[in-house]
Structure formats: C-alpha cells, structure tokens
Nucleic acid binder design. Structure first.
Length: 291
DNA sequence: AAAACGTGGTC
DNA sequence: TGACCAAGTTT
C-alpha cells in the first residue's frame, strides 16, 4: 500500500533514463554484462565500456574466446577487476554448458561465477521478464523509507530483504519486472542516499518515512571503506602498469609504483594468486593469458 | 559475519 | 579536504 504500483510505474514511464542496456533490442547477455559492470560502479562510468564490450563481444561465446588479458584491458578502470575474470568464466560456462544462451532461471544463474542474489534476479527480471524480487542498495533504501519509515536501510539480510520486496511485487509478470526497475530508478534518481528529492517523489503520499516526519537513520553506523594506502590501492596501481603495456614488464617497473616494498610484494603476490597477473618464464610480469 | 575487493565523483 | 557514495560477490 505504501508503494503504489500505478503511481510508481507512471513515474517510471516518463522519467526513466534511456540507458543502453534497457533498450528493447538488448540481449540477455547485454543485460548480464551491464549488471556485472554496475556492481558498485556508477552508471556514467559503465556506459562507454558496456557499449564497446557488446560491440566487441556480442555473445558469450565471443568473449569466451578472448584471453584473460584482453578481457582485463577491455574492463579498463571500472574497478574490482576480478569481476571481469569471473564474467569471463561465466561466459565460458554459458557458451559450453548452456548453448550460448544466458540462463533465465535464478538458481542456474546463481551457480555462475560472479552472480549473486542481486544479479541473478536482475537478469531473470530485466532480461526475461520473470516475476522475482530484485533487491539492490537502491531498493533497500526505498523500502526502508517508504515501507518501514526509517531514514535508511539497516544491515542487509538477503532473506528479509527479498521477502520485503516480494510482498510489494505486482502479480502480473511483466508488470512486476518493470516495477522492480522502477523501484531501483526511484532510489537512484529521487530517493537518494544523501539528499532525497522528496518534492519530486511519485509515492510521497504513501511514504511511511514522510509520515513519520523523516526521522534520521537510527541503525548501526555503516563502516566506511578506506582506500588510500590500502592493498586495494596498491593492487590497482600495479595492475594499471600492466594494463598500459603490451609487453611483459620487469619487476623493477612495478617496484616504482609504491615505496613500501613489503606491501608491494604482498600485493603482487595476491594478484598472482587471484589470477589477475601472470609471471612468465623469464621472470617478467604480464596480464594473464597473453604470453 | 565481517572484511576484502578499485576507482573516481561529489558535497 | 576528506568522508561518503556507486545496480555486490566472495571467502
């Protein structure tokens, strides 16, 4: 009741962004690639990479045939490059075991690398029109406010979050899928984390948070991720050297990116373990699968 | 269940 | 300036 489907869907119909992966001609593969790229990564940074990616690798089997290094280069600076490796593995599995067709079943999708509770349902809903709850950070925030009257979502609980949204979903399959997209869009454009634009909200009249006088978030403090000085930063610097060169590089070329030798070597080692970097016979380093 | 995992824009 | 934030998944 607090999230009126008609109001939300009408708002979505006239306000939704024209994102390339939402166009009718987009394949399920295109939807899957977009969902992986969008994990923890803003739309604006994903868009150009997604367009190039789909042009180069229009089907899972096409990407499966590329090397890991090519995939990592195409991934560019989207961040969390292990996503690219997992997408590569998923593409191979789809090509080899699913006839080059992205699965439409949530459990089958969940079995693929890099696909978790959110992405599996997003693909089922947005690529195949299935009626299943799609819960990302936007949806969690909208539900926390509109339904529960809280300032923000508390710690995630997949079971509870899915049940919350399942209870809101319209009965009709195709409508349910659009409803999920609309919920996400509302969280992204109006019901934002920082300064929600409640004056533009289509469901303000049913919003429990509004009714309660917009109380501040009262849950446990959210841990803030540090970046400067962490292994994540150092790994990123190391990988950036390799991305920028066609030829393998000597270790000295990697040593210059970070002063602390202990941390540097630990990070290089972890990149090797993760399969993001490869050491060739002569001792030099390169992106995997290219030499 | 908490922590690791990239990168860059914004207020 | 620096903390917060961005369509999460894995271990």
């Amino acid at each position: 009741m607090s999230v009126d489907a008609d109001l939300l869907l009408d708002w979505f119909a006239e306000t939704a962004r024209d994102l390339p992966w939402r166009r009718p001609e987009t394949t399920a593969w295109g939807v899957l690639v977009s969902e992986i790229m969008l994990q923890q990564t803003p739309v604006a940074r994903v868009e150009p990479v997604w367009l190039a990616w789909l042009q180069r690798w229009p089907r899972p089997s096409a990407m499966a045939a590329a090397s890991q290094g090519e995939v990592l280069r195409a991934w560019g600076k989207l961040g969390y490059p292990r996503r690219a490796l997992r997408l590569h593995e998923a593409a191979k599995a789809i090509a080899d075991e699913h006839g080059d067709v992205v699965p439409s079943d949530v459990d089958t999708l969940l079995a693929l690398p890099g696909i978790g509770a959110y992405t599996a349902r997003a693909v089922a809903a947005f690529a195949y029109g299935r009626r299943c709850p799609v819960v990302d950070t936007n949806v969690r925030r909208v539900v926390a406010r509109a339904v529960h009257g809280a300032g923000d979502a508390g710690p995630p609980s997949t079971t509870r979050d899915l049940a919350d949204v399942a209870a809101l979903l319209p009965d009709d399959e195709a409508t349910a899928a659009r409803y999920s997209a609309a919920l996400m869009e509302l969280g992204a454009l109006v019901c934002t984390a920082r300064t929600p634009r409640c004056v533009d909200c289509p469901i303000i009249d049913g919003c429990a948070w509004q009714r309660a006088g917009r109380p501040a978030y009262a849950g446990p403090a959210k841990p803030v991720q540090k970046f400067a000085g962490t292994d994540r930063q150092v790994r990123g610097l190391l990988l950036d050297v390799l991305r920028g060169t066609a030829e393998p590089v000597a270790k000295a070329r990697l040593d210059v990116v970070w002063a602390d030798a202990g941390q540097r070597d630990r990070c290089l080692h972890s990149l090797l373990v993760d399969g993001l970097v490869e050491q060739i016979e002569d001792g030099r380093f390169a992106l995997p699968g290219e030499h």
